[in-house]
Each structure stands twice: as structure tokens, then as C-alpha cells.
Design a protein around this nucleic acid. Structure first.
Lengths: 172, 172
DNA sequence: GCAACTGATTGCAAAATGCAATCGGATTGG
DNA sequence: CCAATCCGATTGCATTTTGCAATCAGTTGC
């Protein structure tokens, strides 16, 4: 279940962590979609992960140190998953991955608007986003000045705007 | 063999391209190791890819537009694989992946020195490297001033330096 | 009480992977 | 000229991983 360690190359070791079809998808939904519960991840993702795979990956990501699990006080059965610093620092990789995919792959507009915003914002926006995630997941005090719109709000607004524009002027 | 298209999300589509254990390893060896032939990729990589998997992935990467294949004029049997622009623009992703792995995973010093150099050099160095790759693989004219040491030379020198230092002061 | 929901687990078929052996053609050394 | 070697794969087969549906036992809301 843990790591193979085929070689000590950083790229190889990174691939052994999330060189599969689901681990990064789960982290994407937690980072950008704000999902924290098993069912949210199960039903919320567009790609339709199976529950056994999800359970397996969550376990694996915890073992690798990317996630932690805690009891949700509001519900004795609910578990709440949190991103660790190790996972939060994946934001730049996610941003680059999104930027590359947007250029070379048949992405849909609604789904790529977030990647575009993240690309345009560059490293400063990534830092602000990572700061927010640390606040939400690790409980760290936020360094962004109060009143600043959160990155998640910006991402959401950009998405809504595209959806609204498409609804009023359907192209297909 | 081609793409699943589970969703139009850029991160998902990117994962469908190289969300497996070997595709990025092959591209890494071509980009950073300068390997162009089947046997070089087969025997040269530390991770020990099987020949059938290598053949499968080379075919797949060609179908996806990341590689092209041409006859080697010097040897009627040899094929030479080239990176396309699509593959060359993976350099920033590779750099970020290496940087992340260097922080969070048990990398070895010899193998992570290249990631370190690439991280320190930042986007300008990435651009220079991509320019070199375009020159080597696509035949584009190089924009870097003559006399400048190539990134590949710098990467090689940094690696040699670590190996030499380790040889004269063995820690284990 | 009971239906709906919680985070999972089980069983099973299908696909991917890892590994070793092998292929036919091309080249090289003597 | 001929054997050995090298070339990019291909084949067969056992093991592992994946995808999918059904199911589980405990919790909650009504």
C-alpha cells in the first residue's frame, strides 16, 4: 500500500504518490471543491469514482501524509478529511497541470475557467489560496487582510458567470 | 488506447494523458536524459521499464501527440523519437513536480540536484531549456546567445559534482 | 419504528501490469 | 561469409489493479 521506491528521483517518487487515475482527482475536489466528507467526494465528482476505490485512496493518502481524518462533532458517524501542508503545497502543480491541459486538451469552458483564473493570478494568487487552505484545514491564522474576497469565492464567481452566459446564449 | 474523457476538466484530462506509472518517466528520460532510442529508454532508466510497456507507451504518446517517430538515417533499423511542442511544454510541470518531491519525499541527493537547479533557475531557466529542446527535437532555431552553457550541460555538471563530492567523502 | 444516510466492505469480472522469452531483420567483427 | 550482437518490438502468462454493483452495520431525523 505504501510507496514502491523504484528510485530516489523526485519525479519518480512524486509519480508513485499520485501517478494513478484517482488520487489527484480526490485532492482536486478537496482543494478546489472544498469537499471534506466521504459522500461529498463520492457523489460530487464529475468523474464518478467507485466507493471502494475512494475508500482505498483516502486510506492511502492518509498513510502517505497528505490527508488526516477526524470525527465530525455534529454527527457521530461522519468523518471529516483535512488536507495537510504536504497536500496544500500541491496547488502550484495543480495550477500548472490545469494550464497545460487547457492549452493541449479538449477541456470544456465551464471547467477550465478556474484553471484560467489560477493561471492569470500566478504565484501570488496561489499563495493566497494556500493560505486560505491552511486556515480551513490546518487551523492556521489567515494572513490575508480581512475583506479581501477569497480565492474560492473568485473561483466560484468565475464559474457561475460562465454558466450564466452559456444559459442565455446557448451555442449548441 | 486513446483518451477516456471522463470529464472536460483540465486536471482530469491531463491525468488521463499521464496519470500512470510510466508515461512521465519516459518523458523525463527524453527531456532531461536526452534519450531518443528505444534501447536507451529501455536500459537507461533507473526504474527498469519492461519492453512491452515501453512499446505500448511510446505508441500511446505518439497517438496523443506528445511524440513523433522517424527513421534514423545512420541505421536502417533505428527509430528516433522526438518531443513535440506539447511534450516540451511539460517542463514547468516537471519542475514543479520535482520541487514538490524534493521537499516531501525521500529523494536521493544525486537525483534531486537537477530538480534543485531547475527550481532555483525558475521560469527563465525553464524557458531556456524549452528553447534548447525545440532546437534539438523540432529543429527550431535557437534563441539563446551562442556561448551560453546549455541547461543540459548545467544539469550534467551539477550531477557530476555531487557524485564526485560523494566519492571523496563517502557518508555511508 | 423506520426510512434515509453515514463511511465503508465484499464479490466478481475485466483490464492493466510485470516479467521472461522470443521474433525477424540489420549491423558489426573477424 | 558467417556468427554474434543489436534493433524495435511482440507474445504468453501469472499477478495485480480497476470498475461496478450489492451490501453492511451504525446513526440520524421524523
Amino acid at each position: 500500500m505504501s510507496i514502491d521506491r523504484r528510485s530516489g528521483c523526485p519525479i519518480n517518487l512524486s509519480l508513485e504518490v499520485f501517478g494513478d487515475r484517482w488520487s489527484l482527482i480526490i485532492l482536486r475536489d478537496m482543494i478546489f471543491g472544498g469537499r471534506r466528507h466521504f459522500r461529498e467526494l463520492l457523489n460530487g465528482s464529475l468523474e464518478g469514482i467507485a466507493s471502494n476505490i475512494l475508500a482505498d485512496r483516502l486510506k492511502r493518502l492518509m498513510e502517505l501524509g497528505l490527508l488526516t481524518k477526524a470525527d465530525d462533532p455534529s454527527h457521530k458517524q461522519k468523518a471529516i478529511y483535512s488536507l495537510t501542508e504536504m497536500a496544500i503545497t500541491l496547488v502550484p502543480i495543480m495550477a500548472q497541470l490545469g494550464a497545460w491541459g487547457r492549452v493541449w486538451l479538449p477541456v470544456t469552458e465551464e471547467l477550465s475557467i478556474r484553471a484560467e483564473l489560477l493561471e492569470k493570478g500566478g504565484p501570488p494568487l496561489w499563495e493566497q489560496f494556500m493560505d486560505e487552505l491552511r486556515h480551513e484545514h490546518v487551523g492556521a491564522p489567515s494572513k490575508t487582510p480581512p475583506g479581501t474576497p477569497t480565492v474560492r469565492q473568485q473561483l466560484r464567481a468565475a464559474y457561475e458567470e460562465v454558466v450564466a452566459r452559456k444559459a442565455e446564449a446557448p451555442s449548441v
